[in-house]
């Protein structure tokens, strides 16, 4: 169903982090941006669709004005708002927001670290970091924290006047991933889902004030990647399972024993309902989701396997809304491998 295309070389290898691949299509310019995190650096490649031009950029996780501190990056993701696209980078120190081409850092939010932690030789027992990034609705970007809190930033259509507008408390464990409704057109009540290290899922409604609509309890295993499509939560777990829940009611529609190791990444092609899952077991699988409006339920069917030999996959994303192509990267791998439908 898919065949391998020419790989894109990147400057540094990918670190083993959940959802470690960012993809943004810039249709008017016929190019795609890719981001891959390597320790304290974000590797960025802009690739023209004709495959002739690749330009590279590296972003450091550096707190402005502090020369010495670099920290490990946990995630880099593109946030596409109706008015603008931003690249959001989360780390141990804080949250950075860049213009989508990585040229200018427009916003920096420092994480609160306990005062003692700044003293020498004293690091808090619980790791402090931000992780889980999602654009929601017209103007919001949500970012998860290791404390379980979720920060909501209000982003103006241009300029750097980004403000922290809300802090949502729904999780008790570290946030792993977050996703907004990706089906577009249709109006759904729930428009954001967040996941944590205990596998708990929170379903939110955005607005002036975000509302917690539903809490779907976990079963003590991390939910490492989550998506929201047509009112259905698609969640991937450390057990290699994928679960499909109705977001608002929490009804379990399907459970798939999908992978032999931890799932690291899920992605949905919203127009076709294709679902991509990738795991430490070196396999990428493509599934098909269909809604049956009569029974208000969703069905899932398996379509395709791709083995990336000897690679613990850490990032996998469709490159377009139909799922015509997808890209994959893995731990210690200095390339982005692309696959296109035959």
């Amino acid at each position: 169903m898919y065949h391998k295309e020419k790989s894109i070389q990147i400057k540094n290898s990918a670190s083993a982090l959940y959802n470690n691949l960012g993809v943004l299509r810039i249709a008017p310019r016929r190019l795609t941006y890719f981001t891959v995190v390597h320790a304290n650096v974000v590797n960025m490649v802009s690739a023209s669709w004709d495959g002739l031009n690749y330009s590279h950029r590296q972003l450091q996780s550096k707190e402005p004005n502090v020369a010495t501190s670099t920290s490990l990056i946990t995630q880099a993701a593109f946030c596409a708002l109706p008015s603008r696209d931003l690249l959001v980078v989360t780390s141990q120190k804080g949250i950075q927001m860049y213009e989508s081409d990585g040229s200018i850092m427009v916003y920096w939010h420092a994480l609160d670290t306990p005062e003692t932690a700044t003293e020498l030789l004293c690091v808090p027992a619980q790791a402090v970091f931000a992780r889980g990034i999602s654009a929601v609705c017209e103007s919001y970007i949500c970012v998860g924290l290791s404390t379980g809190a979720i920060l909501v930033f209000d982003v103006p259509s241009k300029g750097s006047n980004i403000t922290l507008s809300d802090v949502m408390e729904g999780h008790k464990e570290s946030i792993t991933d977050m996703a907004s409704e990706c089906c577009g057109g249709e109006v759904c009540i729930a428009d954001l889902v967040s996941a944590d290290d205990g596998g708990n899922l929170c379903v939110w409604q955005s607005g002036e004030e975000f509302k917690l609509l539903n809490h779907i309890p976990g079963f003590d295993i991390s939910c490492s990647s989550v998506k929201l499509w047509k009112g259905t939560v698609v969640a991937g777990y450390g057990t290699g399972q994928i679960r499909l829940y109705e977001a608002v009611t929490g009804i379990l529609h399907a459970e798939v024993n999908a992978h032999a190791r931890w799932i690291y990444s899920l992605d949905i092609a919203p127009f076709s309902g294709l679902l991509l899952s990738a795991a430490e077991d070196s396999l990428v699988r493509v599934w098909h989701l269909t809604m049956t409006p009569e029974s208000h339920s969703v069905e899932i069917a398996h379509l395709y396997n791709e083995c990336v030999t000897d690679t613990q996959i850490c990032g996998a994303k469709f490159c377009d809304g139909d799922g015509y192509a997808f890209a994959v990267t893995g731990y210690d791998l200095s390339e982005i491998i692309r696959y296109t439908q035959s």
Binding site: Q241, E299, C307
Partner: peptide, 24 residues
């Protein structure tokens, strides 16, 4: 390093092969 795609799955993981769907 070689990553096997055979042998026992980790404790707590099921062999990947099964899709179960549920009613409301």
């Amino acid at each position: 390093f070689v990553l096997p795609t055979s042998g026992p799955v980790p404790y707590g993981t099921q062999v990947p092969c099964l899709i179960r769907m549920f009613s409301c």
